[in-house]
Design a binder for these strands. Structure first.
Lengths: 254, 254
DNA sequence: ATTAAAATAGTACATTATACCATTTATGTC
DNA sequence: GACATAAATGGTATAATGTACTATTTTAAT
């Protein structure tokens, strides 16, 4: 939009002193959820290569290129830099603004969450990250843990307030999964999937097993009858009875 | 939290150049919902006294006092300055960050919504506002309208992207009202209210009439049986059969 | 005393969620 | 090829919830 205004106002704007108020830095940080090879809920963490919190694990993210991009664009750009993904499903989560959350200066963090199938993530260490990895989310008496085949990171080892961010993202994801179409974004291929595959995603996120016949009924009612998903004229080859394949229409969710 | 770190890192932080990245301004803007004297959903708008958008109606809000307060504190402070309210229920809504949403410079707006009973709002024009008022939210073919006894403001007349902010707030409010306890915050007095009063709030927000016997059943099941609300040993004096009074326990919601 | 207003009590039905059983269609093994 | 196994699909039965509606009670106003 171009801003229409009077000459008087234009004059005011032209001499507006941008440094009138002290400004905070603004970053976006992204909770990238995925399912690992054993269908366990996992997130992407990077090991910081710079102060502060150097060598500590943190969420991917980075500073807003002020004036050149929107917050969404910033999150999209960071996501691409860290994972190589271009068209991922993501949504804004919450904005964290405690004045002491970064030891350098006030840094406002606009947190996003993204849902990406694991095979699409090309983990790569970037500018500020010396390492990056996908870690399964576990819980014990001390809270969350993040582990892969090589190591385990406790939530208290994370940089900044990123443990809080992740906790909120998990809560939000669990709440959204029942009424939003988020699950589709984690499919290996939304153009060719079985009911069981989608059910598995729901089970992982809700952390409980679901009854397949019942899941099937609500899937057919909620998605197929409404036209969001179509049945393909193909079956999958498998051990038991071959399952019908379905295709997500429209939004693509990817 | 005090940040524990090595001498090396402390040295880095001490010479950290705060102006390394160009920084945006950050504001909080607040959608203050209330019910007017006829129980219609209304919001607080202020008339801007300064450029940009001078003399246009806008949401109350203002710049973050960087380093001195959190985002929540900033919203709380602005809310107090504009309405006199100190302990209101409010929650973060969404963060708006399009680079051209403010003609001066990039201004990130962290939007909040608050629910406040009308009799507690002391509308007062503040620094940046020459006028303030509570306006009923209406709809017509052109979108939202905001009107009181003296005037009607069309959504296209609002400053900045505040029409979008309000639209998102209404959507969020309507979604939250079914599973959060927001309605209690709009009660005249959460320590003494009738079932009908609470029902009226739900009706206004959902914009449809509810069946009282059914509402009563779910109220007793959801709040009284669970202990969130207790029945008082008092009745209200009224025209027809006097209604039992109830009291909200715990969170106070105010 | 009568009427009207409002709260409260209860009934009937539809929808949805949950648990569970039975059948079908494939694979792999002897 | 018969048979066990795996997995999807097709059902039924019950519980929980939501919705519509009727009836009764208790008060104020006339």
């Amino acid at each position: 939009m171009t801003y229409q205004c009077s000459k008087e106002e234009r004059a005011f704007l032209d001499k507006y002193d941008a440094s009138k108020y002290e400004r905070p830095s603004v970053t976006t940080d992204i909770v990238v959820f995925t399912l690992d090879d054993n269908d366990r809920l996992s997130i992407l963490l990077i090991k910081r290569g710079q102060f502060p919190y150097k060598d500590r694990w943190a969420l991917p993210g980075g500073f807003l290129h002020t004036g050149k991009e929107s917050l969404d664009d910033c999150a999209r750009r960071e996501l691409k830099e860290e994972t190589g993904i271009e068209n991922a499903f993501f949504s804004q989560l919450y904005t964290f603004g405690a004045p002491d959350r970064d030891p350098r200066t006030t840094v406002i963090s606009v947190a996003y969450m993204a849902l990406i199938p694991k095979h699409r993530i090309k983990v790569k260490a970037g500018d500020d990250a010396k390492e990056a990895g996908i870690f399964q989310i576990k819980y014990d008496v001390d809270g969350m843990q993040f582990s892969n085949s090589q190591m385990t990171i406790r939530e208290s080892d994370l940089a900044f307030d990123h443990a809080s961010v992740i906790r909120m993202a998990i809560t939000r994801l669990r709440n959204r999964i029942d009424y939003e179409d988020d699950a589709f974004s984690l499919l290996r291929d939304p153009n060719e999937f079985t009911i069981s595959e989608l059910k598995k995603i729901h089970e992982t996120i809700k952390n409980k097993t679901l009854d397949l016949p019942n899941y099937r009924k609500s899937f057919l009612r909620d998605y197929v009858k409404s036209g969001k998903v179509v049945e393909l004229d193909k079956n999958i080859v498998s051990k038991g009875k071959p399952a019908k394949l379905y295709k997500l229409l429209g939004g693509d969710a990817s």
